[in-house]
Computed example of a mutant assay.
Amino acid sequence: MAARFIVEADGGSRGNPGPAGYGAVVRDGDTGQIVAEAAEFIGHATNNVAEYKGLIAGLKAARELDPDASVDVRMDSKLVVEQMSGRWKIKHPDMQPLAAEARTVFPRGRVAYTWIPRERNKDADRLANEAMDAGKAGRQWEPRPKAPAVATAATSVDEPPLETAAPKAGWAAPADLGTPTTFVLLRHGETPLTPEKRFSGSGGSDPELSDKGRWQAERAAEALAARGSIQAVVASPMRRTRQTAETVAARLGLDVRYEDGLREVDFGDWEGLTFAEVQERHPDDLSAWLGSAKAKPTGSAESFTTLTHRAGVARDKIIARYAGKTVLVVSHVSPIKTLVRLALGAPPDSMYRMELSAASICAVQYYSDGNASLRLLNDTSHLR
Rank of each mutant, 00 (worst) to 15 (best):
V234T: 10
D125S: 09
I319E: 09
D133A: 14
D266M: 02
R103N: 01
A223S: 13
Q243S: 13
P93T: 02
E130P: 14
R219Y: 06
E142N: 11
L98H: 01
V150L: 15
Q216I: 10
S360N: 05
T164S: 15
E277A: 15
N47R: 01
I319N: 06
E190R: 11
T247I: 06
L209V: 01
S303H: 06
T326K: 03
V7E: 03
A9M: 02
V248P: 13
P348G: 11
R198G: 05
R281I: 09
L79E: 01
M351Q: 12
F199H: 09
P174G: 01
H282W: 15
E119R: 14
K337G: 06
S360P: 03
Y113K: 03
I116N: 03
F41K: 04
G11K: 03
S373T: 12
R214Q: 07
L186G: 10
T298M: 10
V71G: 13
S331Y: 04
M1Q: 12
K325C: 04
R139N: 02
L374W: 09
A153T: 15
G18D: 08
L377C: 05
R281D: 07
T326H: 07
H188A: 05
E208P: 03
K168V: 12
V49N: 02
A320R: 08
G135L: 02
P148Q: 09
K53D: 04
L55A: 02
R341D: 00
P107V: 05
G261R: 04
A3N: 12
D30V: 15
A36S: 12
V340K: 06
N121D: 05
P347F: 14
P97Q: 01
T305I: 03
N16W: 00
H382F: 11
S85W: 01
P117T: 07
P335Y: 14
G345L: 08
G324D: 08
R27H: 06
H332L: 01
L342A: 07
A293W: 10
F267H: 05
G253C: 10
Y22E: 00
L273S: 05
L185Y: 09
M75K: 00
A57V: 00
D379E: 14
F267L: 02
S210N: 14
R74G: 01
Y258Q: 14
G253D: 11
M95A: 00
Y52G: 03
A62L: 05
S236R: 05
D76R: 00
E259V: 12
R63Y: 14
Q140C: 04
M132W: 07
V364C: 06
G370N: 08
K60H: 12
E119Q: 14
A61H: 04
G312D: 13
S334C: 07
S381I: 07
Q96M: 11
G189F: 12
A128H: 04
T194M: 07
R310L: 07
